[in-house]
Design a protein around this nucleic acid. Sequence first.
DNA 1: AACCCGATTTAGTTTATCCTAAACCGGTCC
DNA 2: GGACCGGTTTAGGATAAACTAAATCGGGTT
Lengths: 234, 234
Amino acid sequence: MTPRRARGAPQDDARPLTEPVEDYLKAIYAIEQSGEAAGTSDLATRLEIAPASVSGMVRRLADQGLVSYERYRGVRLTDAGRRAALRTIRRHRVIESYLAKALGYAWDRVHAEAERLEHAASDELVDRMAEAIGEPLTDPHGDPIPTRDGVIDETRHQRLSDLAAGQRSRVKRVSDDDGELLRYLAQIGIRPGVMVTVAERAPFDGPLSLRIGKVTVQVGPVLASRVMVELLPD
Amino acid sequence: MTPRRARGAPQDDARPLTEPVEDYLKAIYAIEQSGEAAGTSDLATRLEIAPASVSGMVRRLADQGLVSYERYRGVRLTDAGRRAALRTIRRHRVIESYLAKALGYAWDRVHAEAERLEHAASDELVDRMAEAIGEPLTDPHGDPIPTRDGVIDETRHQRLSDLAAGQRSRVKRVSDDDGELLRYLAQIGIRPGVMVTVAERAPFDGPLSLRIGKVTVQVGPVLASRVMVELLPD
DNA sequence: AACCCGATTTAGTTTATCCTAAACCGGTCC
DNA sequence: GGACCGGTTTAGGATAAACTAAATCGGGTT
């Protein structure tokens, strides 16, 4: 039973980031990764929060120096904000990896658990977990794990849905937040490291035929856009 | 990135207990263990919160059916409240045990970490942790771990400070919330399972001489009152 | 240049928790 | 039995983060 001190207590000094703040920073980071400045409604969608609520929070983040913000123009992480985001992301991904490797979690269950633990786990715990499973470089979905000093591999990969018929590729990562999707991907054998060839693809965003090992599978473009790959030379 | 929904969201249905609520229930349980109904200021002290704040919260707990409360009379856990408290306590103690056994945490560090994780860890995670380390019956400080169904060993032990000179005893548990104390106890060899004999004791709550294995140590009555033992037959 | 529409922001509320200061109760002390 | 005292409770605020509804901005249309 340790202190409490929070919500409505007259604030005095520098307290750690709150859970919502960490979630906003992660979301902003994610949006910046695949595009430019994060707009209010992108954030609202991703966080499942009303757009109006985002405006308010974003102002508070700016007050804390975590983002730069111009009304009607979207937010952008400051260096401090990016560092904080990467710290949270490291926690999340190390925890995911640990749950999978050390505790036998299925890869479609780790995300939800990590989502809660990432806010409570200390850096010491995260470091011990990372050490216990051999300092992994990526999480179970293939996302890169930032180092303790906030260095992250930001290599951009292409979507499987962007490949042309005949191209061979290796799966680098799959989106981690949809359990159903992950279960299906596991079932058809798509996971980081696996080789996938586009056998054929229908025009106008139609379904793709994929060769995974010896089997061929049909997948829709939505699913294919959730799989990031590295193109392999012919 | 999963929903948010919290603090100021118009509440709709039955949501899980909040962190403060879980902490209050644990504190009330602890006080009930070593005495009678929990008074407002006992709670305030233990939670490091102003007494006035406790009054308000306690009313809310009563509204939720977790405690029974009569103004100026203190609170008492209802069955639902006790079940909830034991669930949190199980999480806390399993996590403590896991940190110590599986991740090499020192026993004076596990409490603080568990204090935060207990609110975020799912029952599935806790069960997996317990399994991974062989379903421990007690945490590293000797406190009993409730089963999944909320059964806990409520055996009362006596304080080492209550023994008379010459009595032999086995350490059952030590209080877990003071890191300093734990480091010192570890240093002089006091931990659950160890045999301790009171060599002599000064009158008027003076210091005690303890024999632990081959060595003799002087300890003050405050320290001795934080060590719970089982008296051994002569 | 006036207009419109969707994206954003502001205004005003709600909830959960905490705080301080002031009022209050119950039980001793004379 | 009245005064006092410490433990409690009430009153009144503060904060963080959401929400809804209403106002507003910016950019493309005619």
